[in-house]
Design a protein around this nucleic acid. Sequence first.
DNA 1: GATGAATGAGTGTTCATTCAT
DNA 2: CATGAATGAACACTCATTCAT
Lengths: 190, 190, 190, 190
Amino acid sequence: MRIKDIQKQEAIIFATVELVNEIGFVASSVSKIAKRANVSPATLYIYYKNKEDLLISTYVEIKKKLSTAMLKNFDESKPFRDILFKVWLNSFEFIKKNRSLYQYSEQFSNSPFTDLVNHDDLEEHFEPLFKVLQKGIDQKVIKDVPFEILTAFIFYPVMNLSNPKLCRNLNFNKEIVEKAFTLAWDAIKL
Amino acid sequence: MRIKDIQKQEAIIFATVELVNEIGFVASSVSKIAKRANVSPATLYIYYKNKEDLLISTYVEIKKKLSTAMLKNFDESKPFRDILFKVWLNSFEFIKKNRSLYQYSEQFSNSPFTDLVNHDDLEEHFEPLFKVLQKGIDQKVIKDVPFEILTAFIFYPVMNLSNPKLCRNLNFNKEIVEKAFTLAWDAIKL
Amino acid sequence: MRIKDIQKQEAIIFATVELVNEIGFVASSVSKIAKRANVSPATLYIYYKNKEDLLISTYVEIKKKLSTAMLKNFDESKPFRDILFKVWLNSFEFIKKNRSLYQYSEQFSNSPFTDLVNHDDLEEHFEPLFKVLQKGIDQKVIKDVPFEILTAFIFYPVMNLSNPKLCRNLNFNKEIVEKAFTLAWDAIKL
Amino acid sequence: MRIKDIQKQEAIIFATVELVNEIGFVASSVSKIAKRANVSPATLYIYYKNKEDLLISTYVEIKKKLSTAMLKNFDESKPFRDILFKVWLNSFEFIKKNRSLYQYSEQFSNSPFTDLVNHDDLEEHFEPLFKVLQKGIDQKVIKDVPFEILTAFIFYPVMNLSNPKLCRNLNFNKEIVEKAFTLAWDAIKL
DNA sequence: GATGAATGAGTGTTCATTCAT
DNA sequence: CATGAATGAACACTCATTCAT
């Protein structure tokens, strides 16, 4: 499968994300996605092996964008708190600007498809962050608990808070975001 | 006249939860659920208006059980930390013992069906907890931030941590659970 | 099947006619009819062998009522034209007053169920009318053509004209009815 | 890209008409029609939006054919009686040759689907006939009654007479047809 | 490379009917 | 007599995918 038309592929991804956000995973059929992307259902199979492949690829693509965004201007020479705050802010920024991408990834990661993704590959991108956390632990600035627990308190709440379904009444201005980070930092700092 | 077979309804619910956990929301068709419950597809429609109703009812049922479990032995005369720790432990206990129920509810709350549930009704059960948090805020023991942020740091991490998909390498013994609560408490305490 | 509750049977017939007129033959299911009649689907099978039997019996019942109404005050001593006019008026009267019954019979007689009815039994009721027609033919007052043709011109137009679906813009007052009969009479008279 | 197989569509229409005539409207399911047409049920939905669309389209198609046949060699310069006789003969001819098409249309026009057809569009084809009738009225050759009544006496009996279900014992040779027309003409002429 | 036609297998749901009470 | 529970079979329709062009 030699890919000719990059615009076509982007149209497909865009249509996929859009449609999944609008009508959900279940209802987003191949033919509907194709129609939305102004493409024949058959064309879709030139770019992707099958529906699964399309959904997974879209997810991986988004995750890459997210990790890149989160680690933008990552400067490990700064104090731990500042580093993490920067990442925290980047996350919010990204989610706010790309709510649809984020929503898609949320739906995806709670679907049975998740099991089909190689999560190690995805976590690889967060390596610098893990290194900083480890350094923080070594320097007795951050609590010595497994990474999973640390990230559960730093990043999982971000996702929760920025999920409009779960936090219907919350308006996310800068002040709130900073306040929320205080909780995150208090949680992990020694 | 035959009377409604309560065992049959329970078999349906059980089959639903089981199947959704095994093959996911999308693939769990009415006929598959019926087959699993050793029941005709038509029978299912005696107990539930349609598939949506079945899925939602199952979810609400689970949520009720969860809230009851979380607030077991809720004693608001104790110190704030102890109250929350009790709730925290209850949550872990419940999730550990009813992993399948919990998994179902996780999948559900990230599906488009969520929008169809009256969340206010569900949150009502957590009223005592919210009251305690408010008292904590008033007494300057807990940070004065919106409830959503507080619960995002107390309970959302529980769910994350107890999700075996996300935390594959973590073994949840009592020690770890207590440690994790320390982070939660540090996050919200003033 | 010993019939106890005549009211129940009437409720079933009434519900059948009503429902068939509202939602058509296709959509009128046994359970819907039962619900409309405030009766269990199973009860229906006490009074009728099956759905077919119910529909056919209802039709026959209606046809009997129609023939009785048409031949009301049938006086064969009067002139041919007057006799037929009386029948013609009776028909209009009945259809106007029992439009729902008539509609049902129309739908029925165009359904494949018609083949299951013994039409000879039904036509038997019209025997007096046929006798009059025959007498008219013998006395050279009415054209000597097969009965089917005669009735096709006397009574079939009645049904057509009184079908609001086919004659949407026609308002049936007495004048029009009399005019219409003139055509019928001119058709068959010698 | 495969091109739409015109034979396939014709097979579908043919199967629809055939089946509806054999087992009736109610029992003619999409899958049965598809099987009869040697086509997948899914294929049917390429050509028609849904079952309703299939049935309606088939009806409209038939009606067009009928109107074309009826007005064949329509010559309004001839005497009124001859014009109408021609139309009358055409009708019989068509119905005799296309009994199945005609039967289908009869069933259809008495089903609840009728309401979904734009009858004005269909009647449009009969415009020349209506004009002739109007001219006949103006010239005092035809009775001055609403069109609906006129057609009820000219054409509705044709349909009745050519319906083998209703006229089981009648053999339609040319003589009978001419006789029958005499009644029709006597009915409407002044 | 790209397409719409084509499909068998599946979807959620309702059906006419029977059963145990 | 009368019932609501129960069901296998069928319903209209959509699915992911392949095929011929």
